[in-house]
Design a protein around this nucleic acid. Structure first.
Lengths: 214, 214
DNA sequence: CTGCTGAATATGTATAGACATATTTTCAAA
DNA sequence: TTTGAAAATATGTCTATACATATTCAGCAG
């Protein structure tokens, strides 16, 4: 009855949840578990590594493996791409550049994303031309800055921040929402080695939410 | 010059970003790559699996590996535990049960989380006693429902939803915020095999945001 | 007691070989 | 032409073995 790593993972998770391996405690070493469960050490390794990635275990060389003190569960979210969101919802996507303004090495853009002709998201973006010089020649009336950047300026890392804010006059105008309407705001920054590529603040039309699974 | 799987991963990612392997295209099979790069197939497998988990590749048995059409980057977020957030910020955490009401198999709770004595988050929760019967005897004036559940009712899966809403009278009262203040709302549901364990709607005090890295 | 050095050790990773599994493809039967 | 069964094949996984690497720990010098 050879077992797979997922079975080993399940068994280990059971022991954690049943407090056979209480929080903070060391668990047996891979070799011992492998022997006990009748599998190769590599199989135990695979299982425990997966549990560590999910936050259940903390592993350190030589120091061994211990159960995390607060087993924080983690959720994975994919970074939203507006066009795809709209098309996935079966609607027609459209894009409109509202304003473009170059101030030295900074290119400022305002743009509106539409779903079935109705305002969906409003973005306010700055692109750093010293990091992405090719952007100076791009035509952002045709392609959205987001898509152009995805194609032409792969980033190394970035940050996301969601917050709730009241609609300002800018949002009221373009998203056609009442004053003080609460909106989900997403601020995103992406970086390459040379520095910040872009920073964008996106205000979503009322009612939008962010859904995740754990 | 034997290479590690991370080097293989880096090389594959380079080829994706350089469009040597364009979006949607099939990439060579593991065996061929292994031979080309001078490593074992298992090493290539490790590297490509990691890229697939990060959303760069899509892999299917027999069908091979292809570059994802829209390389959606993913961010991992840890599910927020209010107490920890507060303590991590160096503040004193406090908890107050506002209301408790059992209606048949449903236990309804209202509670307030405090940071340095000031309102931090307001929660509105229902616990399904048919799924977690032990909860009927728990004393939620002492321990927050969240922490009790983490300890006593491990869940299999759950959903998270963030949204922006205007403060209602309930929030105004306890979070001490002006009318129509935009608030970040987190609705969380967790499930065990037997069904839904709990559903909680948490309203965060104004100014709170959700920060992630990619 | 303190600080440094080297031994001990648990996890991390690489490899070759084998078999498992999910799909696609092929090809024959209806 | 359509259907269905069988062959082919790329990825998925397991095993045994070996070596690499990060820490811990013990013991010695100061």
């Amino acid at each position: 009855m050879s077992q797979g790593w997922q079975d080993i993972q399940a068994e280990a998770l059971r022991r954690i949840q049943a407090r056979e391996w209480p929080p903070g405690a060391q668990i047996p070493k891979e070799e011992a578990l492998a022997k006990e469960l009748g599998v190769a050490r590599a199989t135990v390794n695979r299982a425990l590594r997966a549990l560590a990635e999910d936050g259940w275990l903390e592993r350190r060389r030589r120091a061994g493996t211990r159960v995390a003190l607060s087993p924080q569960r983690r959720a994975q979210m994919s970074v939203p791409i507006v066009r795809q969101e709209v098309e996935d919802a079966g609607k027609t996507y459209d894009y409109k550049l509202l304003h473009e303004d170059q101030r030295g090495p900074e290119l400022w853009l305002h743009a509106l994303h539409l779903a079935d002709g109705r305002p969906y998201a409003l973005e306010d973006r700055v692109i750093h031309l010293d990091v992405v010089p090719q952007a100076a020649e791009a035509d952002f009336t045709e392609v959205s800055a987001n898509e152009w950047l995805v194609q032409n300026a792969p980033f190394e890392r970035g940050t996301l921040e969601y917050s709730a804010e009241a609609a300002g006059s800018f949002e009221r105008t373009y998203l056609a929402c009442p004053p003080d309407m609460p909106l989900m705001i997403l601020t995103r920054e992406t970086f390459a080695e040379a520095g910040q590529i872009t920073r964008v603040r996106t205000a979503f039309a009322p009612g939008r939410s962010l859904k995740l699974n754990i």
